[in-house]
Design a protein around this nucleic acid. Structure first.
Lengths: 151, 151
DNA sequence: CGGGGAAACTTGCATATGCAAGGGATGGCC
DNA sequence: GGCCATCCCTTGCATATGCAAGTTTCCCCG
């Protein structure tokens, strides 16, 4: 048997990325389906959620907290802006863009919540939300500490 | 405090999708970086890996096992084909496409393994690979049973 | 055999994702 | 006051992702 065959995912050596991406796709589909009635994609609600928690917020902070590349945010935020869910204004420092929810963004966010609840319940049937939460916490903690030591 | 504020992720109600997507992005970056020397993206290695395990395999089976939409596969497999890592031929049933690794696909896969090991080790610092594996298993199990009951 | 429906894949469109490179604004340093 | 390094964001390119709709091939049933 050639060496590389030993790496084939038989037994217990599974690729961490393959697992997390599988989970991401499956869970994402659940949320996308559930949120269809409010016309939001799962990723959009997640981004709105972060903005709700942080507003008024600039692109850089948002990227840092959500571990998202600037360039991705630049465009996903623009999508939310086109949908009139957020406003984007130049800050006092005019390099900075200040992002806020609009009134209709708040309404849409609130309207999404019951559907989000259902998706969350659906997801809970597939995997442990607690495990997921632990995973998120541990990643965020690790990122914070590496950011600190890099500074 | 308006009702919707209660849903802001303070305390313990975190969105499952936000967590899994965060993990997916962070882990994906680790693997992408690690695999740069062999010129593979993490997603491409994951797909090659599935093909290695299943070849010769058709699009539909590959999609079922990896929980990937047909249309996504249609294009990601085409990318691998352009890179000459896999071959795609019409099956006996000419609707079916039969996917196999090429010789150079095998070499590249083998070459990627040491870098994959490093990425895997790096990922293990951020989260529990065992937890991730359990999550993957539980999702796959659930999907199999729903597929069965739908049949 | 000859339709018609079903199966397997592809194409059109839209979003998300990120690296490399670019553009404008700031601020510190002279 | 002017210059340049730096910061913040955007654009160009490439990949991944999936729904809706289309195309080709197959097979069953009459």
């Amino acid at each position: 048997m050639p060496d590389w065959l030993a790496y084939v995912p038989r037994g217990r050596r599974e690729c961490a990325y393959a697992n997390v991406r599988l989970a991401s796709r499956v869970i994402g589909t659940i949320y996308d389906d559930a949120l269809k009635p409010v016309g939001l994609r799962a990723a959009q609600l997640a981004l709105l959620w972060a903005i709700v928690a942080m507003e008024p917020v600039d692109m850089t902070s948002l990227g840092r907290e959500t571990a998202t590349d600037q360039t991705t945010l630049s465009r996903t935020v623009e999508n939310l802006r086109r949908a009139k869910l957020v406003s984007v204004q130049a800050g006092e420092d005019r390099r900075v863009k200040v992002i806020r929810l609009t009134a209709s963004g708040r309404l849409r966010f609130a309207a999404a919540m019951p559907y989000w609840e259902r998706a969350q319940a659906e997801a809970a049937k597939l995997l442990s939300l607690e495990a997921l939460q632990g995973m998120g916490r541990s990643i965020r903690r690790a990122r914070r500490s590496t950011a600190t030591e890099a500074a």
